[in-house]
């Protein structure tokens, strides 16, 4: 059984979609469409009546809502729960007796809060955007690894599919521990940015290993799953 990423052509690259109940990592630079891709994923679930959870650790949810509206995504629906855990936010939102903004500073508190949520309600899809902030909260690599594995195990118990986003740098621990990694790459060509999407890891399934072009359009992400980017490492 597979679940859709919300981007039909990416599902084809994944030979049918993601394997549910597992964790995935979407990596990319600023403006590469990481957030948009995860919103595609969550909206797809919400459209099917699933309850979905989005935890923002960087972009305020109000701005996200505005941006997503421009792409035709309405995330202001009851079964789409968006949590603003950005550290710069005023302390005004309470979630399980925690201030959301504290989550970005403490991985354990975030994990506990999400697990508490999962205990109370059935969420099928969870996004943490981005994980980069949390990585910075634990200096000891072994401790971070232990915490991260524990988090993945907890989420797996509730059959939720977890998608994390991250910048490109320093993600070897996450790369290793998640079931799949999707990279959003950018190359400069004659003053124009060409974007390419590549699945670099997908445990338990065959997948399209090629770098495929994609564009961020007025309707979200469009992947050209049969085409080549004709550039750079693709050559």
């Amino acid at each position: 059984m597979r679940i859709s990423t919300g981007v039909e052509e990416l599902d084809k690259m994944l030979h049918g979609g993601l394997i549910p109940g597992r964790a995935y990592l979407v990596k990319g630079g600023p403006g590469s469409g990481k957030t948009t891709l995860t919103i595609h994923f969550l909206i797809e679930g919400a459209k099917k009546g699933e309850k979905v959870l989005y935890v923002s650790l960087e972009e305020p949810v109000d701005i996200l809502k505005e941006d997503m509206k421009k792409l035709g995504f309405n995330i202001d629906v009851p079964n789409f729960v968006a949590i603003d855990a950005t550290p710069v936010k005023q302390k005004r939102s309470i979630f399980e007796a925690e201030h959301f903004e504290e989550f970005a500073k403490d991985f354990k508190r975030l994990v506990d809060a999400i697990v508490n949520r999962l205990k109370g309600e059935k969420y099928t899809r969870i996004v943490i955007d981005p994980i980069t902030m949390l990585r910075l909260t634990i200096r000891d690599e072994l401790e971070y690894r232990r915490m991260f594995i524990g988090f993945l195990k907890e989420v797996a118990r509730y059959d939720a599919t977890l998608v994390l986003t991250s910048e490109f740098y320093n993600t070897d621990i996450e790369d290793y521990l998640v079931s799949g990694v999707i990279e959003l790459r950018e190359v400069e060509e004659g003053g124009k940015t060409l974007r390419g999407i590549k699945i670099v890891k997908f445990r338990g399934s065959a997948f399209d290993e090629s770098l495929r072009p994609y564009k961020i359009t007025d309707e979200g992400i469009k992947v050209y799953h049969k085409e080549s980017i004709f550039r750079g490492s693709d050559e």
Binding site: L194, S228, R231
Partner: peptide, 9 residues
């Protein structure tokens, strides 16, 4: 001119 993939598409 950079977007050859759009032509093949």
């Amino acid at each position: 001119p950079q977007e050859l993939f759009k032509v093949t598409h």
